[in-house]
Design a protein around this nucleic acid. Structure first.
Length: 568
DNA sequence: ACGGGCCGCGCG
DNA sequence: AAAGCGCGCGGCCCGT
């Protein structure tokens, strides 16, 4: 059963209609005042458990969540369209000609721009007349039908279906996590800032301890007016002081012995804390002890998520001590161990590499340790650097030097990424296991490849190698993102089922963070064992859904902590 | 004044 | 242990 949700005849209403799986209407279209929409959705959800079909989850679901309406599943037309338009699996289906152009993301379901325009509406009027309209029920149905036809005619319909279902589930998780927020103790964070930086400064002043380091640095470099935030001023001052650094990167500066280096590195570290995760950050992103950031599902070409506002996916270890579970709750922090190398082993069907991820008794073991034991004298970090170098396309340095050794050990895996790189260099498109493809090369890129002069040719070759590194990584990173997405979607489904059967009065486990290969569940203490089990089972389900029965597992490491900083 | 690009660094 | 993939953010810097 589908439930189509679209804009109503005016900005204060929405339109809802049930459709059978074959597309025939199962109810009349209902026009619902927006204020009553959460109630209507709850009612239909209860009665039919439909798959909600809408232009984008981000247009509707936050408002539903605010009205305490949650849904089991959806079909996010915008996310699915952007996959289908590029996917090589759907290339021969004619979908690109059928697809209805999406209304811009900034457009609210009622057709009004949500972004503050600052312009008088008088001047916007002519443009608005040509702009794509908010979608009504008929448009939603038309696009859904086009997408279903494309999937049915695709070269791998079941893989593509799985990808689109998982992507849509991701849209629900993202909105729910945004709504819930990560438990974040403002007082703990403030105490941390006070200890490291001093009292909160007024206006645009530097905090005490940061200013003190700046003074010390200026003295050590004999540069009284130096602005330590300016790389240009800094590099000049360093050179004058006899420090012959090529850049002002911290890891490079660490090589030098000079009284200025200590204060400079300390300044850098604290400056970053102050500017990125200081008092302003707290003010902007933390409310009622919850950190609310925004996830952008499919925001990365590879299908990984991105985030915007507050940096939900780049929370520094330094401030994770402020993330503490509610009383009676704990965090279950779970991450997929060596996800990308394992994905490579599965993609390349490299049974030797797969075997390195298991011990003689057939139990999972650290894949890097296994590879190290096979050919790097037991040096785990060496094996890790080599393997990541192979996936990233390293050519120089320690990493590049170790890759040939790996190629002798695992020719299938290395050949797989090599082929992906060569195809990318030729300008071909690459596709993940479930069917997400790289964007086509730009006409400029293609034209560049036909350059004639020596200088242009050198640049074109560099561009080709760069694209090769991208496509080499794309297939692995993208398929890893698919695995993680399926894991996340299955985990959400199971958590909802658990919450549905829990005794009254028990709290609800809630997903609060997702970072590429890691999830965080805020979990009532009574349910920790059960949820930990579900986290592991979901990973096995994900593996089976994607790859079927393969001689390789994707083990998950789960830790139970009160404080996010204590994970790992 | 504003904005795009770059730098440096946080995360995976 | 290094410089190879994907991001976001804040500040600087230089063009307009």
């Amino acid at each position: 059963m589908y439930a189509l949700l679209a804009a109503g005849p005016d900005s204060t209403t929405a339109a809802v209609q049930l459709r059978n799986d074959d597309g025939t209407p199962a109810s009349e279209a209902r026009i619902v005042p927006r204020a009553q929409l959460p109630g209507t959705v709850r009612e239909l959800e209860e009665a039919h458990r439909p798959r909600w079909v809408w232009d984008r989850a981000g247009h509707w679901y936050p408002e539903l969540l605010a009205g305490s309406a949650r849904v089991e599943k959806c079909h996010d037309l915008a996310l699915c369209q952007s996959i289908l338009l590029f996917s090589e699996f759907a290339a021969g289906t004619g979908y690109a000609q059928q697809a209805v152009p999406m209304p811009p993301e900034a457009m609210a379901p009622n057709g009004a721009a949500t972004a503050p325009s600052g312009q008088d509406s008088l001047f916007d009027a002519p443009a608005a007349a040509n702009a794509p309209q908010a979608w009504g029920l008929d448009t939603v149905f038309k696009e859904l039908s086009a997408q279903k036809s494309a999937i049915n005619a695709a070269t791998h319909p079941s893989r593509l279906t799985l990808l689109l279902v998982a992507e849509s589930a991701g849209a629900l998780v993202a909105a729910e996590m945004q709504h819930a927020g990560i438990p974040w103790r403002e007082q703990l964070h403030r105490r941390l800032l006070h200890e490291l930086l001093g009292p909160e400064p007024a206006g645009h002043a530097r905090p005490e301890k940061l200013e003190a380091l700046a003074v010390e640095l200026r003295a050590a470099l004999n540069a009284p007016s130096l602005n330590p935030d300016s790389p240009q001023e800094l590099i000049k001052a360093l050179h004058r002081a006899g420090i012959d650094a090529k850049s002002t990167r911290s890891w490079e500066l660490m090589e030098f012995k000079h009284p200025a280096i200590g204060p400079l590195l300390a300044y850098r570290k604290l400056s970053r804390l102050f500017t990125t995760n200081g008092w302003n950050w707290l003010e902007q992103w933390v409310h009622d002890d919850r950190f609310h950031s925004e996830y952008v599902v499919g925001g990365v070409v590879s299908g990984r998520w991105a985030s915007k506002g507050g940096g939900a996916m780049q929370i520094p270890a330094q401030i994770r001590s402020a993330a503490v579970a509610d009383p009676g709750y704990t965090f279950i922090v779970a991450d997929a161990a060596q996800l990308e190398p394992r994905v490579l082993a599965a993609l390349a069907q490299d049974s030797a590499m797969a075997a390195a991820g298991q011990d003689d008794a057939g139990h999972n073991r650290d894949l890097y340790a296994g590879i190290a034991a096979e050919g790097f004298g037991g040096d785990r970090s060496m094996a890790k650097v080599a393997l990541l170098g192979a996936i990233y396309g390293a050519t120089t340095g320690d990493s590049g030097r170790l890759v040939p050794q790996l190629a002798r050990m695992y020719p299938r895996a290395l050949n797989y990424v090599e082929e992906a790189a060569r195809a990318g260099e030729r300008g071909e498109r690459l596709t993940t296991f479930l069917g997400r493809s790289t964007p086509p090369v730009s006409p400029e890129w293609l034209a560049g490849q036909r350059s004639t002069t020596a200088e242009e040719q050198r640049r074109a070759e560099a561009a080709a190698r760069s694209r090769g590194r991208f496509t080499r990584n794309f297939v692995v990173q993208g398929t890893a993102a698919e695995w993680a997405l399926c894991w996340l979607a299955e985990l959400r489904r199971r958590l909802r089922a658990l919450a549905g059967t829990a005794a009254p009065g028990t709290g609800t486990p809630q997903l609060v963070a997702f970072l590429h290969d890691e999830v965080v569940v805020h979990c009532p203490q009574d349910l920790v064992e059960e949820v930990t089990r579900i986290v592991h089972e979901s990973s096995r389900t994900a593996t089976h859904l994607i790859f079927g029965a393969i001689p390789l597992e994707f083990p998950v490491k789960a830790t139970v902590v009160q404080c996010y900083a204590d994970a790992k």
